[in-house]
Amino acid sequence: MVRVEGVEPTKPHTFFGFIKKTYKKVTKLKIRREIANDIKDVKIQVREVKERYDRYKDVIGNTNARTEVDPRVLTMYTKISDLVGIEKSMDELTEMLSKGDDLSGQKLKVVSVVGFGGLGKTTLAKAVHDKLKKNFDCGGFVPVGQSPDTKKVLRDILLELDRELYKASATMDEWQLINQLQKFLVRKRYFFVMDDIWDIRTWEMIKCAFMDSHPESRLIMTTRIVDVATKAGGIYNMEPLSDDNSEILFYTRTCGGEGLTSSNQHAEVTNKILKKCGGVPLAIITIASLLVGKQSEDWSKVYDAIGFGHEDSEVVQNTRKILSFSHYDLPSHLKTCLLYLSMFPEDSLPKVLSL
Rank of each mutant, 00 (worst) to 15 (best):
Y303R: 03
S342R: 15
K134S: 15
T270V: 15
V226S: 10
R72E: 06
S213L: 01
F15V: 11
H129K: 07
D227T: 06
I225C: 00
F136A: 07
N179M: 07
M172N: 14
L330V: 09
K152E: 11
D304V: 01
L124G: 04
E68F: 12
S354Q: 14
N135K: 06
W299I: 05
L83T: 08
Q45K: 11
G307H: 02
F191I: 04
F250T: 13
I31Y: 14
G118K: 05
T286D: 06
Q182T: 09
T10I: 12
D58R: 03
Y251A: 11
V73C: 03
D54G: 06
L83D: 12
L260K: 15
V114F: 02
G278N: 12
K134F: 15
G293L: 03
S104T: 14
A127V: 00
V280W: 05
D298W: 09
K183E: 08
D58Q: 08
P345I: 07
S89I: 03
D199H: 10
R187C: 05
C277M: 09
G118D: 09
P143F: 02
E268H: 08
F116A: 10
G259Y: 02
A168M: 00
K272Y: 12
D173L: 05
K167Q: 15
T270W: 05
V4W: 02
L124R: 13
G139N: 06
D91Y: 08
F192K: 01
D227K: 02
F192G: 02
T336N: 12
L290R: 10
S348K: 07
D196K: 02
F344H: 12
S326Y: 09
D102R: 14
S217Q: 03
I235E: 13
S112V: 07
E297C: 08
I19W: 05
E258W: 04
F141W: 02
Y303M: 05
V42Y: 04
R187T: 11
E239V: 11
C255R: 14
F184S: 06
D70C: 01
V315G: 01
Q317G: 00
T122C: 03
L119I: 12
G293R: 02
D58Y: 00
Q146P: 04
N237L: 13
T78C: 07
N264T: 05
C138Q: 00
D312R: 08
V59Y: 00
L29S: 15
F18D: 09
W299R: 08
R201S: 14
N62V: 03
I306D: 02
L83P: 03
K30T: 11
A36S: 12
G105P: 12
G120M: 03
K231Q: 06
P71F: 00
L219A: 02
F18H: 09
T223M: 08
P215R: 09
G85T: 05
L241G: 07
R218N: 03
G61V: 06
G259L: 04
K188C: 00
N179E: 06
M205P: 01
I273A: 06
M76C: 14
H129V: 08
F192Q: 02
K321R: 03
G233N: 12
K131C: 01
W175D: 13
I35H: 08
M343R: 08
M211D: 15
D304N: 06
S104M: 12
V302S: 00
V316Y: 00
S296C: 08
A127I: 01
V7T: 14
A305N: 14
Q182W: 05
R32C: 12
T222S: 10
L249H: 08
L290D: 13
Y23N: 10
D312L: 05
